[in-house]
Design a protein around this nucleic acid. Structure first.
Lengths: 226, 226
DNA sequence: ACCTGAACACCGTTCAAGT
DNA sequence: ACCTGAACACCGTTCAAGT
């Protein structure tokens, strides 16, 4: 998979061997093949045939590298439904693709959740589609940002949950002391669907249904008392 | 804050100076005072007046230490409403306290999201309360686990979001290219409420409203006769 | 400008030796 | 059983030297 790295002397090469695109692609290959723990600056440099310090001529830090990856990965999120499909269908398409992408990139979730959007044009493009979808469906402008962020929070949490071991909710030896929960988990498991899939499906439908009651037809904005 | 560490020779002390409870308490003091990045095994050992390797006589790894902290922190989550309040009110109380606790412990979220519950009796106790609440409200057993996990996913995502910088959704110089989203963000900000709070409130109400339509009797019975 | 190679300041963790 | 102190195998990152 990796090119056989040619020996190279110190000094500026004739043409730059790195650059953001090549570095990001190499990082994604490592993640795909061996997972996030294998993504070290050292391993990344080796796969590119350079020394680790060379990377710092392009990326300011590993954190920045992760931001590049995030921006790249975001291309897999499908926000094409907004303005074209009914809002609930567009939300389903968006949320499902968004969760699927970040379930495969769970270590990015804590990074992206805290990352200013200004540095990520592709992410902004996506938010623009979603916001336009809400507004086009007649939503009050003051609720749109909160609705987007809330949906995204559910998506991020669900992406993390999707990476959990299948038996994460097994009470094991304590099962008898927690009969309601153990029974519910056993019953859910008997359905054959992984709990993360069932939870995402049920939660997404509930969230969308709840959001729809806030749309132009619904009982507008009760002030929440929390 | 830390006791002046007395010099101690190698060899077994008369009485154990560590133990899970003391280690966990010391870790929480460090987190409280200086945040998660400051929680290193070395700093923890120093605050306890021992050498770093001494910790490994009690905790198998830093990962296990984080699990102890998680279990300890979980005591702050309020699941006392289930079986006592109407289900929607109990869910509000539970979700709000749960999010608040983990907003202050965001680095635990990726840990806990993937952690088998069997090792955490306090977490199981909490799930038992929630499951009993759903069942007591007449929910079908097969939906309970998914409903709990879905709500928790929203909580975890919201906890991460709560740690984001206040201006995370500012498009900055690109604002003009993304007018729908930028307008929505500006309008939300004008309300004076931090976007994370607005999103959690709106999302929680939507999710609960959506879940209630799935309660006993199907999509008609969302009544909470308190 | 963009690379190498050595070095730095950490990490978590292991283990022999001590009582 | 439970501690110390030295060591190990990493990390990400910096920087002088080279072209």
């Amino acid at each position: 998979m990796a090119m056989a790295p040619q020996a190279r002397r110190a000094g500026r090469p004739r043409s730059a061997v790195l650059g953001r695109a090549r570095i990001t692609a190499a990082a994604r290959r490592i993640i795909e093949a061996r997972g996030y723990p294998a993504l070290t600056m050292s391993a990344l440099a080796r796969s590119l045939g350079v020394s680790p310090s060379a990377l710092y001529n392009h990326a300011a830090s590993k954190q920045q590298l992760l931001q590049w990856i995030q921006e790249d990965v975001m291309a897999g999120v499908d926000s094409s439904g907004f303005g074209r499909l009914p809002l609930d269908d567009a939300l389903r398409l968006w949320a499902t693709s968004y969760r699927d992408v970040f379930a495969r990139h769970a270590p990015l979730v804590p990074v992206i959740a805290v990352l200013p959007v200004a540095g990520s044009p592709r992410t902004l493009r996506m938010y623009e589609d979603v916001a336009a979808g809400f507004l086009g469906a007649g939503w009050a402008e003051e609720d749109v940002a909160a609705a987007i962020i809330a949906t995204e929070s559910f998506i991020f949490g669900s992406a993390l949950d999707a990476t959990a071991p299948l038996d994460i909710f097994d009470a094991g030896e304590h099962a008898a002391r927690f009969p309601a929960f153990s029974g519910a988990v056993a019953r859910q498991r008997a359905s054959g669907m992984p709990s993360a899939e069932a939870a995402f499906g049920l939660g997404l439908e509930a969230l969308i249904a709840g959001l729809m009651t806030r749309g132009p037809g619904g009982p507008a904005a009760s002030r929440s008392s929390s």
